[in-house]
């Protein structure tokens, strides 16, 4: 009997201690965790100050990607309508976010600092199709709230 009471007291003691202790979980999505700015989440394609795309479609990210998640198709821009800062640009740029392992090699390989991994990591979707980020999506990166 006494043994039982002792055990209950001990258990309640642990419970009460934990009640007042700081919590490890967050009430997501009302509150979100702070990530390091170096966190490797979803990709984005950068632009320079004049609004030209930085990506020139060199395909180095495609080459270096260990998961074969990136597809780049380059094209020549018409002389009067430049897309990137030079006459070569990527007409098509796709990242398959299901395949991507977020290793950041693309970012490292990029000679123009066009592709970057943002801290955005909310990548859930209802179908596979929407897990393929196309160029427009990458040019307008979502911002983590």
């Amino acid at each position: 009997m006494l043994e039982g009471l002792k055990a209950i007291a001990k258990g309640m003691g642990t419970t009460l201690k934990a009640l007042s202790a700081p919590r490890d979980t967050y009430p997501y999505p009302e509150k979100r965790r702070e990530y390091s700015p170096r966190f490797r989440g979803k990709h984005m394609l950068g632009k320079d100050e004049e609004g030209h795309e930085l990506c020139v479609g060199c395909g180095l990210c495609e080459a270096v990607c260990p998961a074969h998640a990136i597809r780049v198709v380059a094209a020549e821009a018409p002389a009067d309508k430049p897309v990137s800062w030079t006459n070569r640009y990527s007409i098509d740029y796709e990242v398959d976010l299901i395949r991507c392992i977020f290793c950041g090699m693309c970012e490292e390989a990029c000679p123009t600092n066009a592709v970057r991994l943002t801290p955005f990591n909310e990548l859930a979707a209802y179908d596979r199709e929407s897990m393929i980020a196309d160029k427009q999506e990458l040019l307008h990166p979502a911002i983590r709230k």
């Binding site: 479609g57 060199c58 395909g59 495609e62 080459a63 780049v72 380059a74 094209a75 070569r88």
Partner: peptide, 9 residues
């Protein structure tokens, strides 16, 4: 072939 492809793709 201008701006068409890379040796790895």
């Amino acid at each position: 072939y201008h701006h068409k492809a890379r040796p790895w793709n």
